[in-house]
């Protein structure tokens, strides 16, 4: 049963690549957004918060279709990116990474935001009185103290990106070797006669990865608490 075929390996490795790229690109942006939401008051803050959470509540197929309209070859952004930067998303693994990045963004941002909110602002004030400019305060006090939350957010976002299905298959379809992730491979296998055993193998792999990610996320969250108590 655990004889994983080359096609299945391709799907597993592609999923890992898509989720890794999505997480690495989304993290700096996620930290910036989390910091804005945690530490700044500005016009449109509620709107920004809502937009970020939208992928959590919209049907994934809607998000995928909106991505196709925007980032497709004829979409406003997609056409520009293809022409000026040679960056094509539609029906490419990069598009899968984009879809996964957007779908996992709320899960990535939330733990980071919470951990930044938990950083004692009085410590940031103390740093400022010692001569630290705002960006130095952020890099030397806020971010290190929120680091476990950042890692927890990354793990959670990564796990979500690994399993994303609806938006990805809508946006970039289900092309083996290019856009066929674990989820879309399972979907294809279930619809194929005699695909059950292969689907089951991928289900097990996918469950193991998700469980490991949850345990890692929990572990980082615990470390965050310890760090804040100064031991």
């Amino acid at each position: 049963m655990f004889d994983i075929s080359p096609t299945e390996w391709t799907a597993i490795l592609l999923s890992l690549r898509v989720a890794t790229v999505a997480t690495l690109v989304a993290t700096p942006l996620g930290i910036a957004v989390a910091w804005l939401l945690a530490r700044r008051e500005f016009w449109g803050k509620a709107l920004l918060d809502a937009v970020i959470h939208l992928p959590l509540v919209l049907p994934p197929v809607v998000t995928g279709y909106l991505l196709l309209l925007t980032f497709g070859r004829h979409g406003a952004v997609g056409a520009w990116l293809a022409e000026h930067l040679g960056l094509v998303f539609a029906f490419r693994w990069t598009g899968a990474a984009l879809a996964c990045g957007i779908m996992s963004f709320p899960l990535l941002v939330r733990p980071i935001r919470l951990s930044i909110e938990a950083v004692d602002r009085r410590l940031e004030q103390a740093a400022a009185t010692l001569g630290a400019a705002p960006w130095q305060v952020f890099l030397t006090v806020t971010l290190p103290l929120a680091l476990s939350g950042v890692l927890a957010g990354m793990v959670l976002g990564f796990a979500k990106a690994l399993g994303e299905f609806g938006a990805t298959i809508t946006f970039v379809s289900n092309i083996p070797g290019e856009t066929q992730t674990i989820s879309s491979a399972i979907y294809a296998l279930i619809q194929t006669p005699d695909g059950d055993a292969a689907a089951m193998r991928l289900v097990v792999v996918s469950t193991l990865m998700a469980t490991a990610a949850l345990i890692a996320s929990e572990w980082f969250a615990r470390r965050a608490l310890l760090r804040l108590h100064g031991n």
Partner: peptide
């Protein structure tokens, strides 16, 4: 003048040492 440019030291009632 911004806090970090004042060169004024501040010792708070709670020491506020950086725990990390």
């Amino acid at each position: 003048v911004a806090v970090h440019r004042r060169r004024i030291g501040y010792v708070f009632q709670d020491a506020r040492l950086f725990p990390h």
